[in-house]
């Protein structure tokens, strides 16, 4: 199982660490379900990057008046796919280059900053000479 190849984010990019599920029909890379969409009339999924770019181009070719948007464009315009198209356009048309942070901690739990702070390596007991984090260290040994 390969990891999803999508880079999340807009101003700075980070890896999507979800397992890949299917390949994009356009670029052939593997992505997770969150980063794949099936276009109406298509049988294979497209990744948000490819879909976003296509939709941006289609939109640029159209008159930008509101009335030219169809229902599918509405779905796209308010979907994450729009952000991927927009960011691709933003990166290529201007001078902006996003920072890449690799895997950024996603704190989605009920633990707040105060809870997290006490688990810093420097807060460990008997740790006067703390050097570096050691992934081997684990307290769950029976």
């Amino acid at each position: 199982m390969e990891n999803c190849n999508m880079k999340r984010g807009f101003f700075f990019l980070r890896d999507c660490d979800h397992p890949a599920h299917q390949s994009c029909a356009s670029c052939g890379k593997a992505f997770c379900n969150e980063h794949l969409r099936i276009k109406p009339g298509a049988s294979a999924p497209f990744c948000l990057d490819c879909l976003g770019k296509t939709m941006q181009q289609t939109n640029q070719n159209k008159d930008k008046k509101v009335s030219t948007r169809d229902d599918y464009y509405d779905d796209y315009y308010y979907d994450t796919a729009w952000c991927y198209g927009y960011r691709s356009n933003y990166y290529t048309s201007g001078s902006y280059k996003p920072w890449y942070f690799g895997t950024v901690d996603a704190d989605g739990s009920e633990f707040n900053d105060q809870d997290i702070r006490v688990f810093e390596p420097s807060a460990e007991i008997e740790d006067p000479d703390a050097e570096a984090f050691d992934p081997d260290a684990n307290v769950f040994d029976s």
Binding site: D105, D107, S109, P135
Partner: peptide, 14 residues
């Protein structure tokens, strides 16, 4: 999961 996160709780959440 090869995490370089030094904070135990953040690593657990990852």
């Amino acid at each position: 999961l090869a995490s370089n996160e030094p904070n135990y709780l953040k690593r657990a959440m990852q």
